[in-house]
Nucleic acid binder design. Structure first.
Lengths: 89, 89
DNA sequence: TAGATATTTAGATTATCGTCTAAATAATAA
DNA sequence: TTATTATTTAGACGATAATCTAAATATCTA
């Protein structure tokens, strides 16, 4: 999956909580409940942030029973950055 | 000048007009009036966008008489991107 | 089928954003 | 000084965003 919307990607990255979520997911996939431990916001708010990251194609999700595992979509992540940087080289 | 605020930089980059302004400034410094030709917004709106880019340290300004020349601050620009990418390597 | 756990959706509230017009400031030129 | 040009500031308005609580949906287990 390629870059759908550069604006959405940058907007997603403009929030420190969302950048921290990506940093957590860099190490391993995590569920919303696992992530929630690290952030001082309600679960609906966390869900909202995850949705924004997902719509920007920066993360993927996969349900396993009751749990949903979110993971970093490194490909799109680099695509956004590199495509953008190439415009300025 | 280093990165003051990563959030401000990404937020600045989340608007397509502001990204287009940066692309124009990649080639040469330009005044608000010169830039205005290329964008379908009022001059106060353009001024607002330039202010956001300036607060994010993505551009510099320099007055020459009546005119103010805006230029890309490539250093900060790359710093934001590279520092961020390094976090995900 | 209930009950428990995991997550999202709905709806409200407050704050921020992008835009405009009108007015103000700054510099130059007649 | 007065007029002209370049740009920003002020203030308003509608749209979007981040957050919360309460309720709904989905899955598993007894």
């Amino acid at each position: 999956m390629a870059i759908k919307d550069v604006s959405a990607a940058f907007r997603a990255l403009s929030d420190p909580i969302r950048r921290d979520i990506l940093k957590k997911l860099r190490k391993r996939s995590m569920t919303p409940s696992e992530l929630a431990i690290h952030f001082p916001i309600s679960k609906p708010s966390l869900s909202h942030h995850l949705n924004i990251l997902k719509n920007a194609n920066l993360i993927d999700d996969e349900r396993q029973g009751q749990k949903i595992y979110y993971s970093l979509n490194a490909t799109v992540f680099y695509d956004v950055m590199n495509n953008f940087l190439n415009n300025f080289r």
